[in-house]
Amino acid sequence: MPTPAVEIAGLVKRYDGRAVVDGLDLVAHQGRVTAVLGPNGAGKTTTIECCEGLRRPDDGVVRVLGLDPLADAHELRPQVGVMLQDGGLPTGVRAAEMLEHVARMYADPRPVDELSERLGLGAFARTTVRRLSGGQRQRLALAAAVVGRPRVAFLDEPSAGMDPQSRHAVWDLVRELRDEGVAVVLTTHLMDEAEDLADHVVVVDHGVVIAEGSVRDLVASADDRTLRLDATPGLDLATLAVALRTSGSAPEVNEIAPGSYTVVGGVDARTVAALTAWLAERDVLATRLTVGRRTLEDVFLDLTGRTLR
């Protein structure tokens, strides 16, 4: 097994005594897209910033390409591409100048013209960064992150604020980087981004990893089919669970939000029939009833909870 591109063990980072990252472990490999998924404030950005050498860990070990991001920064920086969440682009220069400037920091950068074309930067090459839209800035920041042919790319919410066309251009580039052998580590809270792009998903909450695996692993780790029901709040879950029990399975019923229910575990045609009969007996109308595969979003919400924070 080759050395992992990124290896984090027991990372702890505190702000004002409060642990934002609290014993986090993560491994990312070359030629793979690793998505760090989590709600706002979960510690995703702080974790990435420790990998980029922008923050000093309070505890734990961080290695990127086997090197310490702080002590070995000199050796590491040319091999690592970074896209910050807040851009980090100087505002007074033109887009093309910015990219050419970053390219000058590397011995063998990607051809700027080709990269510009890939990401559709040509349309605003002569516009100052200050006047770019959010999505245009994001594309420029991504271009700056990869222009030095990095072996590891850290992309913090790469497609935030982008229209669908831009997002697909970004995703195509990320896939190409992966195919070239780059280790791509991206944070996101967009489920479709993780689902479409990631070879490996790491779900982070409250500064620790609460689940990880391929998208397929994560959605299949529970039962394949989920029944979702919207009806009046406060149904008697215990008696409903009994009514749904058959010889072959004992589905589990949960009210995940008032009036919103899920049934998982051996959901089949008989489960649906039993459920509708049970509702009819009680004169309850189902306003929505669907049966489908769990999505990554279901898994994510089950793991991190549905309350707003």
């Binding site: 980029e52 050498g53 922008l54 920064a73 000199h74 920086r77 040319p78 690592v80 970074v82 910050l84 807040d86 851009g87 980090g88 682009l89 100087p90 505002t91 970053v102 920091m105 590397y106 920041a141 700056a144 030095g148």
Partner: peptide, 16 residues
């Protein structure tokens, strides 16, 4: 530059 993250982004490139 500091507020806009420019200093941080530059410090991750070989410029340091």
């Amino acid at each position: 530059d500091r507020r806009n993250g420019v200093l941080r982004l530059h410090s991750t490139t070989p410029l340091g």
